[in-house]
Amino acid sequence: MFHSRLRAAALLAGMLGAMVLAQAPARAAPAPNPEADRLAFQAYFRKNYPAVKNSDWGNGPYALNAGMRKQWEAIMQFPPYEFALAAGEKEFNRKFANGRSYADCFPNKGIGIRQNYPYFDTKTGEVVTLGIAINRCRVANGEKPLGYKKGLLAAIETYMAHTSRGKPFDIKVPNDPRALAAYEAGKKFFYSRRGQLNFSCASCHVQKAGHRLRGDILAPALGIMAAFPIYRSKWGEMGTIQWRFVGCNKQVRSVPFKPQSKIYRDLEYFLSYMSNGVPITGPGARP
């Protein structure tokens, strides 16, 4: 019974679509305007969650729930990501076989630059995230690339994020059609409902930020990238943004994409741009 209404609705939408199509080109999607999107996005969060300070957006659920914040503060006294931080620093300062090291691959010797990632590489025409940049550096110096979810790469990102703590996100979307397309693709992914549960990222992290999902409090989308990489108690180890995207997709029963695939890099690009001005709080500790 219900399904017939569904099919009828789809049919109706189809017919309506056909009629509208005639004028559709006039109402074609407006040219992408990332800065306008960002201002509206941040205004939504600042209006609906007035108590949250700008520096606190990067603390996700702990910015919106006192009970959770208290537990987080207890854990932050001596956070479990300390081992990854130490391992990351050691690896970051290790010399490659050819005598060079990570510092030679990054601007400002790799210190205090995490807030500029991801950036749009106009040469290759694609979004480059910190993980991609690390692996590019390793391959350029004869080292084999690392896994994008966890392990050593997450440890290196932990150290680099730690050196950027407090620095506000500063993501650039150049006026290059390919960059704008990547930005729009990330935006579309963020707002599209997917999976059998039919949720979009926005369903939880925009419309229900601060609400409870069984034991968890939903983190606001503003600043959600700032705390990565994170040590999740659930994982029992350090994990990257890309691993979290896979996890979130699975939770709505959508088949996830490969970490650092184009669709996930565009999503990270869009989400990071939305958080411009919000300071880095990574590495983070989460449930």
Partner: peptide
């Protein structure tokens, strides 16, 4: 100890 544990695997107690 917390009223609602964020994660049953890591409950900070003092």
């Amino acid at each position: 100890a917390p009223d609602i544990a964020e994660n049953g695997a890591v409950v900070p107690v003092s």
